[in-house]
Amino acid sequence: MYTLLGTAKLNGINPQRYLRHVLERIADQPSNRIDELLPWVVAAKWAQEAASATEVQALPMAA
C-alpha cells in the first residue's frame, strides 16, 4: 500500500485521490486489465483528461 501511494506521489498525483479512484473501480476491474489502475497509467489518463478539458475551454465560442 505504501509503495502504491508513494508511486502516486512520484507520478504527481494526489495519493488520496488515487486511492479513492482505485477503490471505486477495483471490484469491477477485470483481472487481465488490472494494470490500468497503476499510478503511472492513472496519472497519464488524468493528464490527458485535463489537457482535453483545457482545449475545450480554449475553443472560441460561436456568436
Rank of each mutant, 00 (worst) to 15 (best):
Q57P: 00
G6C: 08
W46H: 06
T54Y: 14
L10G: 03
L10K: 09
A53F: 03
L38V: 01
N32W: 14
R20K: 08
G12P: 07
A58I: 03
E24A: 07
N14G: 07
W40Y: 11
A27L: 08
M61E: 15
Y18R: 02
R25F: 07
D28I: 02
A50I: 01
P60I: 05
V56F: 15
A63F: 14
L59H: 13
A62L: 14
N14K: 11
M61I: 11
A50P: 02
M61F: 10
R17A: 15
E24W: 04
I26M: 12
G12L: 06
W40A: 05
N32R: 07
Y2A: 10
Y18A: 01
I34E: 11
Q48E: 13
R25T: 00
A62D: 10
L38G: 02
A58E: 11
N32G: 03
A8I: 01
A62C: 05
T54M: 14
Y18Q: 02
A50E: 14
R33L: 13
A53M: 12
W40P: 01
I34D: 06
I26T: 02
P39H: 07
P39D: 04
R25G: 04
M61C: 12
L37K: 05
L19S: 06
P30K: 12
Q29N: 08
S31W: 13
V42T: 03
L4V: 00
A63H: 11
W40N: 07
L37R: 03
R20H: 03
L59M: 14
Q57F: 11
K9M: 10
L59E: 15
V56A: 15
A43K: 00
R17S: 12
Y2R: 12
I26R: 10
D28Y: 09
T3H: 05
Q48I: 02
Q57G: 02
D28T: 05
Q29D: 08
G12C: 06
S52D: 15
